[in-house]
Computed example of a mutant assay.
Amino acid sequence: MQNFTNGVPAGLIPGSWVKSRKSEANGTCVEVLGLTQGGVALRNSTDPSGPALIFTTAEMEAFLDGAKNGEFDALVATN
């Protein structure tokens, strides 16, 4: 089992990357991949071989909790 670190080329991480159903038609979105050793990798869908960010399960839980509670809503432009 391989441990991955931040900045590893995302193309070197095996698995099926997942993109949100709300992703724009042109494919610009963040993609995620659950890692076999635990944690989550994120990559930019427009640069699938570019660097991946690696997060622990606890870090992703904290982020998702904040997102669900609207803590980051001010970062997104609204119409």
Rank of each mutant, 00 (worst) to 15 (best):
T5W: 00
T46C: 14
G66C: 11
T57L: 09
A52F: 02
W17D: 05
N6W: 04
R43H: 06
S16A: 00
G39K: 04
Q37L: 11
V40T: 13
N6D: 13
G27F: 04
G70I: 08
F4T: 02
S20K: 06
G11A: 05
A10G: 04
G70E: 10
G7E: 09
S45R: 01
P48I: 09
E24P: 00
R21I: 09
E59V: 03
L35T: 02
N6A: 06
S16Q: 02
V76G: 08
A74I: 05
K19P: 02
A62E: 06
F72G: 01
G70C: 10
K22D: 12
E59H: 03
T5M: 07
V76I: 14
P51S: 02
S16T: 04
L33M: 11
T36E: 13
D47Y: 09
K68W: 13
N3V: 05
L42M: 14
T57P: 08
A62K: 11
C29F: 10
N69C: 11
A62W: 06
V30D: 10
G38E: 04
K68E: 12
V8D: 01
V40I: 13
L33T: 08
N6I: 03
T36A: 15
E61W: 05
P51T: 00
V76S: 13
V8P: 03
N26W: 08
P48G: 11
G27D: 04
L35P: 01
T5F: 07
V76R: 15
M1H: 12
V18I: 15
G11D: 01
W17T: 05
G38C: 04
S23T: 12
N79E: 08
W17M: 05
M60Q: 08
F55E: 02
I54K: 09
T36C: 12
V8R: 01
T28W: 14
V30P: 07
A62I: 06
F72I: 00
A67Q: 15
P14C: 00
K22Q: 13
V18H: 12
A74P: 00
G15T: 01
P14H: 00
S20Y: 07
A58G: 15
D47N: 12
G38M: 02
V8H: 00
T57R: 11
L12K: 06
V76Q: 12
A10E: 04
C29H: 11
T57F: 06
A58C: 14
L42N: 10
G15K: 01
F72K: 03
D65R: 09
Q2I: 12
L35A: 05
F55K: 05
N6G: 08
N26Q: 07
P9T: 02
T78M: 05
G70K: 09
D47A: 12
P51D: 02
S45T: 03
E61Q: 14
T28P: 07
V8Y: 01
Q37E: 13
R43F: 02
A77P: 06
L42R: 09
T46W: 14
C29D: 15
E61C: 06
L75I: 00
A58S: 15
E24M: 07
N26H: 07
G34F: 04
D73W: 00
G27P: 06
R21V: 10
N3I: 06
N3Y: 02
